[in-house]
Write a protein that binds this DNA or RNA. Sequence first.
DNA 1: TCAGTGCGTGCAACCGTTTGCACAGTGTTA
DNA 2: TAACACTGTGCAAACGGTTGCACGCACTGA
Lengths: 335, 335
Amino acid sequence: MSATIKDIAKIVGVSPSTVSRVINGTAPISDEVTARIRKAMKEMDYHPNARARSFATGVTNTAGLVMNATNEATFSNSFFNRSVFAIEKVLQDHAYNLLIANDNGQSDSQILELVQGKKVDGLIIPSSSLDDRLISFLQNAEFPFVVMGEPARRAEEVPWVDVDNEQGAVEGTEELLRSGYPEAVLIADDDETVFSRNRLRGYREAVQLRCREQVVMAHHRYEDLGKKLVKEVGSLQNKGFLCASNEIAFYTRRALKELEIQVPEKAGIVTFDNYPLAEYMDPPFTAIDVDTYQLGEKAAEMLMECMHGKKIVQHQLIRTKLLVRASSGRTIRRE
Amino acid sequence: MSATIKDIAKIVGVSPSTVSRVINGTAPISDEVTARIRKAMKEMDYHPNARARSFATGVTNTAGLVMNATNEATFSNSFFNRSVFAIEKVLQDHAYNLLIANDNGQSDSQILELVQGKKVDGLIIPSSSLDDRLISFLQNAEFPFVVMGEPARRAEEVPWVDVDNEQGAVEGTEELLRSGYPEAVLIADDDETVFSRNRLRGYREAVQLRCREQVVMAHHRYEDLGKKLVKEVGSLQNKGFLCASNEIAFYTRRALKELEIQVPEKAGIVTFDNYPLAEYMDPPFTAIDVDTYQLGEKAAEMLMECMHGKKIVQHQLIRTKLLVRASSGRTIRRE
DNA sequence: TCAGTGCGTGCAACCGTTTGCACAGTGTTA
DNA sequence: TAACACTGTGCAAACGGTTGCACGCACTGA
């Protein structure tokens, strides 16, 4: 068995409470006693028992991150990766641990269990795992939580961080227009999500008055995207394509190749997200990159505030960053 | 305050221990009493307090996964992603939670703290975070742990799971030779890791007697990889290149393009790992894919066994899967 | 009929730490 | 010099479960 606070107390000849106070600095203890306790702790290789401590204090110093298993995208892109890393970092800086929970889609049983069982002090929840019931439950329990991604409903009521998809779309579109393509076309999957809506909004905003608005919905069916494009927008020449995903960008690029329309000379491509190999495509894709590290960081920082009693419901947008590569033409024309 | 076991006991008119036994099924309780307790629990919205429980039982029902922050590769590829998902799934099936710890490189302080503070009952550790001190510590404390990736040292002593890099290299090389390229060349970063060594071994094994052995070390400097290749292997025509990473594969492909050597007609490429866009390269890369889901799954299952007292030190290799695409030629020549 | 066995339940200790309250001693201030 | 504040420490309760032991009762087999 490992040493307990009582063992230390006995050795040093003080009461357990004194040892506790030395450990936590919760009361002034004479230097002499402090030193003796410290020494004994070292000698006996004492380490506070986190289990007992959370039991006594009523907090676990652990925050939960729910990940959305059903959402395959969570894994395929690096979103989760770097966010997790950032969250862990922030929590660690505050002496908190990170617990991963899974929203299995069935019900929020695991999430609820964590909260009700008091295994975590706070929660970071992807907006896709959020429903009215969960919001109500958490609000009712006054349980600290932060949402990643702008929620579809009741967004004003809850704290969240999200990528500034609107700004990203604006910048992407402007990059295309600025590069000299007379028209910009948005190609997206019509999945009713808030971020899709925001991207659409950004595109519209940027395109306003400068060229007509053309939106093609891919509906996750990419194989015949080329045909669909031709059918809906006519000639693909002299168009700039704002693609909602790397995959869409790739299929768009392939369609252009088949039509022998050169990129970036005759058509441009800007894509959302920046997969590892996006810069190695031919030509390399100009990408609207999301700093997922920052996203996680902000979420965690916000949660820390919530857990420390601040009640302000705030919202934060992370700016995207346009990585200009060859596919949008500007770098070429510059020469 | 939420209801406690004592509240339930009082309401029903039994002792707290009876309630506890109903919850845990640790002793036979009459159907009638059980029913009344169940009802009361429901009515009072009782949920066992995990903090109190772990304090009493001495276990947390939580396992830790240490991630290696310093290792950027952990994030760029999907390794971490799917593994985490799998681990969480297995743990959840056993009513365990997953806690993420970070090996910040400085010292294993956080890891040690988790173990010494008894915040977790077991640990999954990437081999890159493993050193002799940590092994000794864990073994000494008889603390359950499983290593992800074959450890560089003392591999026989500890339980681990790893990708069968050797088998992957064999299959990749054979694919190239079978496809008709007279010679297979391995291009790798010389980073002294176990997995590099295993890949090299696999390559050698496959090449044996069939063609001469040619290994080019890129040393993480890819820009002049083309020149280096020409210098070290001479003509790049009629060669099959086994690339240790997607990035190497990309630069190899570029070098071939500049030399106007057609892929797959005049040279072939097989790459380790399968980044999201690997299949969209031109031509699509034949890849040695790793089932990281399975990797995590096995690790978690192994850990569960360890935590349940089994002491067998075992090692498991996950088979890689060759995804044949155009870059290795076979699909082309088939027509 | 009696010892033995199993079922159903309660008692009370225990897990390791924190913390409100009390109190003695030592300054400090008016 | 009395009243007060502050420092340094101990006592004991509390946090919410779990569990070994004991016990009463009903049944079984000899």
